[in-house]
Amino acid sequence: MGDTTTVRVEGRLLRLSNLDKVLYRGAGFTKAEVIDYYSRVAPVLLPHLAGRPATLRRYPDGVDGPSFYEKNVPRHAPEWVRTVRIETPGSARGNEYADFVVVEDLATLVWVANLAALELHVPQWTVGPRGGRHSPDLLVFDLDPGLPATIVECCRVAELLRAELENDGVPVFAKTSGSKGMQLYAAVEVSSPERTSVYAKELAQRLAREFPELVVSTMAKAARPGKVLIDWSQNNPSKTTIAPYSLRARATPTASTPVSWDEVEACERPEDLSFVAEEVVVRVTHGGDLFTGLHDEPARLPA
């Protein structure tokens, strides 16, 4: 278990440890397989991490053990790992800032995978080459089903949201959360950092009024059984969302997987839109990145 292996990744020397450690006990999925998965999806994953300060969710003893969110870069990080200092007002630990990792090359991705950072969470905004923070470039809706609702109900809500967004001239892309729900993304240009939150909240509340049997827009647990929460709050600049292609800490190594609208419309069972690492690699190999084009023509949100 304590064995280490030194590998060269894009000219960087990396020491990998505990490669045979099982991180997904239910599937016998090891750290070596986690690193292999991330290496194989790197061409489609890295564009969605580039320029975005990453919050790592680490599981050193696997998904059945304790986990922790890591914003500050570990002290033993190689000097070539890009970091960016971001103010963190209201931090639970009282820190004024954190030095986040920016994962934008294969060597850094392999390095964080070796930390057992199974989940990669990023904000809806990027930083510039010198760390300057840009306005949000993504609008996101997180669809969270309240039991007994499942991703099937999320798909029906996603179709409603898509119709509203496209009516406003906003093209939208869909992905599974890799857990119970799904997320919708749209590339946008905004005049103020708050604009995406305001727009998302208004749209979520409108659909909750129009489809009260299916949609809720408030966090109250009591309101959610059998319905889908449209979580508009993910657009708060201080919040992050699971990155496309990131693994999730479930019983099996599922991943947050971009899906086509044909797949969304055809979804009738939760299994229809649940993908584990090996399936995601096959999808990418044969179909490329279904989020290609997301940033091609950012939409102007209506005033």
Score class of each variant (00 low, 15 high):
Asn95Arg: 15
Asn95Ala: 14
Glu96Asp: 13
Tyr97Val: 01
Tyr97Glu: 12
Tyr97Asp: 06
Ala98Cys: 02
Ala98Ile: 04
Asp99Lys: 12
Asp99Phe: 02
Asp99Cys: 04
Val101Trp: 05
Val102Gln: 03
Val102Trp: 03
Val102Glu: 10
Val103Thr: 08
Glu104Cys: 10
Leu106Gln: 14
Leu109Trp: 03
Leu109Cys: 09
Val110Ser: 02
Trp111Glu: 11
Val112Cys: 03
Asn114Glu: 04
Leu115Gly: 10
Leu115Gln: 15
Leu115Asn: 01
Ala116Leu: 04
Ala116Asp: 14
Ala117Val: 11
Leu118Ile: 15
Leu120Glu: 01
His121Thr: 10
Val122Met: 11
Val122Ile: 15
Val122Trp: 01
Pro123Phe: 11
Gln124Ala: 13
Trp125Met: 10
Gly128Tyr: 09
Pro129Phe: 02
Pro129Ala: 15
Arg130Leu: 01
Gly131Gln: 06
Gly131Ala: 08
Gly132Thr: 10
Gly132Val: 00
His134Ser: 13
His134Trp: 02
His134Asp: 12
Ser135Pro: 04
Ser135Asp: 15
Ser135Gln: 12
Ser135Ala: 14
Ser135Asn: 14
Pro136Leu: 05
Pro136Cys: 09
Asp137His: 13
Leu138Ser: 00
Phe141Leu: 12
Leu143Asp: 06
Asp144Pro: 06
Asp144Gly: 08
Leu147Gly: 08
Leu147His: 06
Leu147Lys: 13
Pro148Gln: 07
Pro148Lys: 09
Ala149His: 09
